[in-house]
């Protein structure tokens, strides 16, 4: 748990245990401790339905047949567990100010609350392609493997989401949380669409540094892209800064709009926001998790 202690304090972990992943359509194939809206084999009654030939005879309510002389099917709600995929961006652009730390913390918190809730979790680190990934973890006691992974991983390569479009999409349906700055030259729309098409419930968490949102630069500057090394000369004046802020606003608004239209949860998080605020205020209100 040493990695977890660095990322999240024990007090915070205790608080996180009270949170849960949202109980929406859980497309997991595994029976678990969560009620679903699907009918299944739990003990919770859902409805009666008239028998039609071909129905499973096991669900016929014989007591009702004894009283009424008609065949009814008694249906119960299904209970499944949740499967969380944490897709965390480790490209070099994440290694800026507190972006990477913020991303790790959020990922660790989400992973921990999932495991603590008896659900399963998997962490995938990606840059240009999928790098390291944990096996499917179950139970609170295996959270240390998540923390350990986040603790030792360094950011590095150029990032992209193209590998999702290339077919490396998680197979078993679950909740996919993509934590990244979404500053991909190649775009994000198609990969996110692919995830949704596979039946995943997609959560988009965009992490941006404060200097990206509101740059303090002034004067003639030689701007160097941290990933590609590509550089441009810009004379930064208040006018230019104003236009830049406008451009950032447009970019994030476009992503938010895309997510809203596709039914994905979205949150924009700055690197200098407190983790408590992020978890208990921002993500709760964005519907990424519930109490």
């Amino acid at each position: 748990m040493s990695g977890g202690e660095q990322l999240l304090t024990p007090a915070l972990l205790a608080q996180i245990e009270r949170l849960r992943l949202p109980a929406r359509d859980l497309p997991s194939a595994r029976v678990g401790g969560r009620k679903t809206r699907q009918l299944g084999s739990s003990l919770e009654f859902a409805e009666y339905r008239a028998y039609t030939p071909g129905d499973d005879l096991r669900y016929i309510d014989w007591r009702a047949y004894a009283r009424l002389g008609k065949l009814f099917l008694k249906r119960y709600l299904d209970e499944r567990d949740a499967l969380l995929y944490l897709l965390v961006d480790t490209s070099r652009s994440m290694d800026f100010d507190g972006k990477w730390l913020q991303a790790k913390r959020i990922a660790a918190a989400l992973g921990y609350l999932t495991l603590a809730g008896g659900d399963r979790a998997e962490a995938w680190l990606f840059a240009a392609g999928v790098g390291e990934r944990t096996p499917r973890l179950t139970g609170k006691q295996s959270a240390y493997r998540l923390f350990e992974l986040f603790g030792r991983t360094e950011t590095g390569e150029e990032g992209s989401l193209d590998w999702l479009a290339g077919g490396s999409v998680p197979r078993e349906p679950g909740v996919v949380v993509v934590i990244s700055d979404f500053l991909f030259e190649t775009g994000y729309e198609e990969p996110l669409r692919r995830l949704q098409a596979r039946g995943h419930q997609v959560v988009v968490l965009q992490i941006l540094a404060r200097v990206e949102l509101d740059p303090p630069y002034a004067g003639d500057s030689h701007l160097i892209d941290s990933e590609s090394g590509f550089a441009r000369d810009v004379s930064i004046s208040p006018h230019v800064l104003k236009r830049y802020r406008q451009a950032v606003g447009d970019y994030t608004a476009r992503l938010a709009d895309f997510c809203q239209r596709r039914g994905m949860a979205y949150a924009l998080i700055a690197d200098d926001e407190k983790i408590e605020d992020v978890l208990f205020r921002r993500l709760l209100s964005a519907g990424v998790m519930t109490r």
Binding site: S221, V234, S235
Partner: peptide
């Protein structure tokens, strides 16, 4: 003109601006 080197996470956000400027 002397330009000061400034590393930014990504030039993506500056692109629109730079195209114009």
């Amino acid at each position: 003109r002397t330009y000061q080197d400034v590393t930014v996470p990504s030039l993506l956000l500056w692109q629109q601006l730079l195209r114009d400027m």
